[in-house]
């Protein structure tokens, strides 16, 4: 029944004048049109008519939306998950974040631009003193993509290091740390924050750094807690997740593989600090990042 009805509507579906119109563009031309549109627009237009639906499933359209080295990304998954998939299904698969490296890292494609985004959990980083429960704890939470964050009670030597080696496609990326001051929990369905351990972050700034295998580096310093002057206009650095932008790096080609080492340090041992959650490091194409800027510090 569906077929008969849709053929009825399509035969009437040409332009007002009765002659052939926009709706009669052959499928191969629609493919060409789709090269200029974004994946959400293509999926939406697939409903338009038969030619558009056929073109919206064609491999040549979706191959142009995938990053040039998408095979490297697929290799991170078990092969049975991506065998025999069309290019469209591969895009759909990769546009949802998927974990790799024991679930300590996640990678996904931006749905609109098809560019590679990555996130590295605190679980996948080297944290000084992490094995001592007097200093650090793992706190399960829904607020993290990885469902767990590292919570610091108190420490003198605060150091978090990490490294990622991946054939990033050519682009400009921004690296940032996602940090929350204070401990949060749910009480009677409401989110509450406690700052009982939070201290020491207003005394000296934390130093964020990264360097890449081809010699690019960046560093930045920032006081994680509001100093006394800031406090006058209310403390904006508490009770929310803040992404601390460290800097940008440029990848010219996906080969050779880019290695990025990043770190966050506050190792002035004259004062202790604590009461802080570390979630992840994210590596995201810079203009995507700017588009959704939320609480990013320059």
């Amino acid at each position: 029944m569906g077929a008969s009805l849709s053929s009825l509507t399509e035969s009437n579906g040409s332009s007002n004048g009765g002659g052939p119109g926009f709706g009669d563009i052959p499928e191969s031309c629609v493919v060409c049109v789709f090269l200029y549109l974004t994946p959400p627009e293509i999926c939406n237009l697939a409903r338009l008519n038969r030619a558009f639906r056929g073109a919206a499933s064609s491999d040549s359209v979706w191959e142009s939306k995938l990053p040039s080295n998408y095979h490297d990304i697929l290799n991170l998954m078990p092969p049975e998950r991506h065998q025999n998939l069309t290019k469209k299904d591969i895009f759909a698969l990769l546009s949802r974040p998927f974990p790799f490296d024991d679930g300590n890292k996640a990678l996904w494609l931006d749905r609109v631009t098809g560019r590679v985004c990555m996130s590295i959990s605190a679980k996948g980083m080297a944290i000084t003193g992490i094995e001592d429960r007097r200093y650090w704890n793992w706190v399960p939470t829904e607020e993290s993509r990885f469902h767990v964050v590292a919570y610091l009670q108190q420490i003198w030597w605060f150091e978090v290091d990490g490294v990622i080696k991946f054939p990033f496609p050519a682009d400009i990326y921004t690296l940032s740390f996602r940090i929350h001051l204070g401990k949060f929990s749910k009480r009677l369905g409401r989110r509450v924050c406690s700052f009982e351990h939070t201290h020491g972050w207003d005394i000296k700034p934390v130093r964020f750094e990264f360097s890449t295998s081809d010699g690019q580096q960046a560093s930045t310093q920032c006081c994680l807690d509001a100093t006394q002057q800031d406090n006058a206009n209310g403390n904006h650095k508490r009770s929310c997740w803040i992404e601390y932008k460290v800097g940008q790096f440029i990848v010219k080609e996906s080969d050779p593989t880019t290695e990025v080492r990043f770190s966050m340090k506050q190792i002035d041992c004259t004062h202790s600090k604590g009461g802080l959650c570390v979630d992840c490091v994210s590596i995201i194409p810079s203009d995507l990042k700017d588009r959704r800027r939320i609480g990013v510090l320059k």
Binding site: G2, T9, G13, S15, C43, A46, R47, L48, N49, R53
Partner: peptide, 25 residues
């Protein structure tokens, strides 16, 4: 662009929505 009438939109939408259920958007 396609000069569809209301009836056609209703019917074709119904059909295509079923067809395209698995599309992400």
């Amino acid at each position: 662009f396609l000069g569809y009438q209301l009836f056609e939109i209703l019917t074709s939408n119904f059909i295509w929505n079923i067809w395209c259920d698995r599309d992400f958007d």
